[in-house]
Design a binder for these strands. Structure first.
Lengths: 254, 254
DNA sequence: TATCATTGTGTAAAATTTACGCATTGATAT
DNA sequence: ATATCAATGCGTAAATTTTACACAATGATA
């Protein structure tokens, strides 16, 4: 296994890597996918190295696929992190020593002491479709509520903070939801998604009017059944019009 | 000189570099600063390598300083370009061969055949203050009207295109002008800047009302003299309020 | 069968954006 | 010296968008 890793290192770039903030939405909460490093309680974002013959975007797609099993997902490059101390500055010494002990000095140095620039992507995925899968360095891969994210390894807390800012920028100028929600959803569910991302409440009547004005939603004849009180109608995105709105841009002004 | 270059290569990252789109505004035209490579008619963006102990942002500031002489400038990281063929794909073979002939195979390979990821920044500078200075690889450094930019080396035309998109995004959500205009300017000059960047005409009365509503401009008692017809008043940005508006954000909705 | 939280639909007020009028200015032409 | 004229300063009304809120309908639960 150590040999495989050496070969992997040899075939990939040493000074640039990729980290991904994978957003999901479930039970009215915004979540991110995190990995726990083997034999430690240190968590980090999903990430990986770039093959020498592989484009940046292709590498990001591959990493996403490896961690979630998904291939068709929204992926957006939002910032490149290039501080010289980003490997270690935000991580406690004790945890670094534990990692060094477990992985051995060779791997540890290559991975954590080299100066590496990391390109940040964020992804929007449908929660229910994700098969969370750890990588070689990690034991566990699972969702965390955005509000409950612990202190992470490296500069990954910063990465999440600025990914959330980028997502908020995104939601104000482009339709969002096709990638985060199941195919059919109710208007209150869509509203809750917007409210969660922007951390802001909206009047449901005005929200519905604004969203419908974008002409990207299709109201279905079905209603959600078995839910408390009055059954809400189901909606679905019109993929064609949705794509068009992504290109022309919208303005979510609430 | 070749020794210096080797030492420079040894002290800098090999897989990541920086390229900067430096915007200026003069005589009602938006301009970018370009460099002509020695003994060729191939033009490129200002760029450079990153010292191993230098953060990405510090390297960008240094490169800006080296090309313009300016230290206090608006600088914004907007995208990282990571296609595998970005070195050569958009450049004619003939020109590449001329560069190889002039610089020698060693330098050429290091510079143009290695796979390099480039972090794109754009800068906004005051045209009159710039001391355009070529670097080791180039003979000439001068302004080009954005509309007249020729076919550039590497993927640099793409870089300008997406930098302009990022600038347009910027101008709609943040005040712009402090970095591009001289200290004192007239309302029509400010309007022309907005119109040039967004490639769109505005009603001058509505433009003035909107800009004044941001509460970042200070109307002076002076007028611009010696200009045709009625002399317009001079304005200046209130730096304090301008900074505050950058943080809170504005919405340029015209 | 009554209750009640939630949803569906609509309307009026407030705020913002857009369109445009008119007097003033000061260099230029006569 | 004076008339001309394009550009500027300042303002108002219409159109549109955003915001606030009213009320009936629904369907699970008590």
């Amino acid at each position: 296994m150590d040999q495989d890793l050496k070969a992997y290192f040899a075939k990939t770039l040493a000074e640039v890597s990729i980290d991904c903030v994978i957003f999901g939405f479930h039970a009215g909460e915004l979540k991110v996918l995190l990995l726990r490093w083997k034999e430690t309680d240190g968590w980090s974002l999903p990430g990986g190295r770039i093959f020498k013959e592989e484009s940046l975007n292709a590498a990001a797609v591959r990493i996403l696929q490896e961690r979630t099993g998904l291939t068709e997902i929204f992926l957006h490059q939002y910032y490149t992190f290039g501080d010289t101390n980003r490997n270690t500055h935000f991580t406690e010494m004790e945890l670094l020593e534990r990692l060094e002990g477990f992985f051995g000095k060779g791997i540890f140095d290559e991975l954590l002491h080299n100066r590496v620039v990391s390109v940040g992507y964020f992804a929007l995925v449908e929660f229910a479709l994700v098969q969370a899968t750890p990588d070689w360095f990690t034991d566990e891969c699972r969702w965390w509520n955005i509000a409950d994210v612990p202190n992470l390894l490296f500069d990954h807390n910063d990465m999440i903070t600025s990914a959330l800012q980028a997502l908020r920028q995104q939601i104000r100028n482009q339709p969002i939801g096709y990638d985060l929600l199941p195919e059919k959803f109710t208007m209150p569910e869509l509203q809750k998604l917007y409210e969660t991302i922007l951390d802001k409440q909206f009047d449901r009547r005005n929200f519905q009017k604004l969203l419908m004005s974008y002409d990207i939603l299709e109201k279905l004849d079905e209603k959600r059944v078995g839910v408390a009180n009055k059954s809400p109608f189901l909606y679905r995105f019109d993929k064609q019009k949705y794509e068009k709105a992504i290109h022309s841009g919208i303005s979510f002004s609430m």
